[in-house]
Design a protein around this nucleic acid. Structure first.
Lengths: 144, 144
DNA sequence: AAATCTATGTATAAGGT
DNA sequence: TACCTTATACATAGATT
C-alpha cells in the first residue's frame, strides 16, 4: 500500500507504528461497519493498541449482545462436537477458561452489588429491584 | 471497489450479498491480522453472517483472553467515569447487561459441571480438581 | 500527534469459466 | 457453488506541513 510493499512483521519504528496503527484502525473499523451494513452481518471488533487503549465497533446490536451471542454459539458448537470425554485435560482447560471469565464478571457484580450498593439511597435500591419502565428495553430489543 | 461504486446499504440481491460477504469477510480477517502483527495490537473480531454462521479472528492471545481483557477494561472505564449514582435507571441497565451475560456463562458452567460431569470417571473428576501438569499453562501464558 | 498530499499497492464488483 | 479475471475504487506508506 502506498509507496512500497509492506512486510508482515512488527513495525519497529515506534512513530511509524503508531501512525500506521491509527490509519489502519480507522480503515478496519470502516470495513467492519461496511460489511455489517452491506451484508447484514452482526459484527463485533475489539482492538487494543500497544499502549492498551481500546477501540471497538459493534453493529446494530451492542457489543454486550454480540458477546452473549458468541458465548452461546461457542457453547452450542462445543455440544455439537460432543465434549471430548477422552481427554479430560483439554476439557478442564476449557472449564478453566470459562471459570476465569466468570470470575471477572463476578468481581464486577460484587463491586456493583456490594461496595457501591451501600452508597445508594433506599429509593435507588428499589429502582434496582424494580427498574423504571423503559430502562431495560434496550436489553431485549433484538433476539438472536 | 471493483466495477462500480458501492452504496452503503444492505445488498438486496441474496446471491450478491452472500458473495460480497464471503469476499469482504476474508478481507476483514486479513486486515485484522495485519494490524495485529504490524502494530502489535491485540485484536478480536467476531462476525456472524446473516445465516448465523460464525467467523472469528483473535491475535496471539485467544478470543477468550481478549474478551476477559475487554470486560476488565470496560469495568475499569466505568470506575474512572465514577458510577453515575445520580441516574439509577441507566445504572441498573448496566447491571442487567452484566447479569444477562453472567447467566449465559453460568448456564454453560452448569452443563459442564452438572450433566456432563456425571459421565466422567472418578479419575477424570480428580483431574478436574487437580489438573495434570501443563494443562493450564496456556491460560497464564500472557498477562495483560 | 493530527491533517493533507500522492504514488502505489490492494481489495473487490462484475463477469466469466 | 466455488474459483478465475480484470477494470476500478479504495486504502495507505511515506513525505510534507
Amino acid at each position: 500500500m502506498g509507496r512500497g510493499r509492506v512486510q508482515l512483521k512488527r513495525i519497529e519504528n515506534k512513530i511509524n507504528r503508531q501512525v500506521t496503527f491509527s490509519k489502519r484502525r480507522s480503515g478496519l473499523l470502516k470495513k467492519a461497519h461496511e460489511i455489517s451494513v452491506l451484508c447484514d452481518a452482526d459484527v463485533g471488533l475489539i482492538v487494543f493498541s500497544t499502549k492498551g487503549k481500546l477501540s471497538e465497533y459493534a453493529s446494530d446490536s451492542s457489543m454486550e449482545r454480540i458477546l452473549e451471542r458468541y458465548d452461546r454459539y461457542s457453547y452450542a458448537e462445543k455440544k455439537m462436537k460432543e465434549p471430548d470425554l477422552e481427554s479430560p485435560a483439554s476439557w478442564s482447560l476449557e472449564h478453566a477458561k470459562l471459570k476465569a471469565r466468570m470470575e471477572v464478571l463476578q468481581r464486577n457484580q460484587k463491586h456493583y452489588m456490594g461496595d457501591e450498593l451501600d452508597n445508594l439511597s433506599t429509593r435507588e435500591r428499589q429502582n434496582l429491584e424494580h427498574p423504571p419502565e423503559g430502562s431495560l428495553k434496550h436489553t431485549r430489543a433484538r433476539e438472536i
